[in-house]
Computed example of a mutant assay.
Amino acid sequence: MPSNKVKQVALMLKAIHSQESLEAAREKAGRVTEQLRAIRLGKAAEWVEQHIDKTLSYYCYPQNRWTRITINNPLERIMREIRRRTRIVRVFP
């Protein structure tokens, strides 16, 4: 079960990526890095600062394509399939 801090960081990252525009997402990323440093997660804050532009690259495409970009991600597809199968089985063999 994830710890409270892990859940908190996940919510922060989702908040960055749910912004309406690239500028708003970058502003939110700045606020998130400040929050991460405030809760003593300096390495996570550094990682966000260094890699956030890579994760926000989908903003360069029209908004109606954003969902297709995430759906076509092979890693996400694999993880979704694993989740689907484990929900049916409920236990790993």
Rank of each mutant, 00 (worst) to 15 (best):
T33L: 11
C60V: 02
I71L: 05
Q63G: 01
T70P: 01
R65L: 14
T33Q: 11
E34C: 05
R37N: 15
V48W: 08
C60F: 00
I52S: 04
I39L: 12
A38K: 14
Q63M: 03
Y61S: 15
C60E: 10
S57M: 08
I52F: 09
T67C: 01
P62W: 03
Y61Q: 07
K43E: 14
L56R: 08
T67P: 00
Q63K: 10
I52H: 04
A45E: 13
A44F: 08
D53L: 01
A38S: 15
K43A: 08
I69F: 10
Q63V: 10
N73Y: 05
E49K: 05
Q63W: 03
R37H: 11
S57E: 10
T33C: 10
L56T: 08
H51V: 10
T55Y: 13
K54P: 00
K43R: 09
K54T: 05
Y58L: 07
N64C: 07
E34R: 11
W47A: 06
Y59E: 08
R40I: 05
W66M: 02
E49I: 01
C60G: 00
Y59F: 05
T70C: 06
N72Y: 09
N72D: 12
A38L: 15
R40T: 11
V48N: 11
Y61G: 04
A45D: 13
A38M: 13
T33K: 13
R40L: 10
R37G: 14
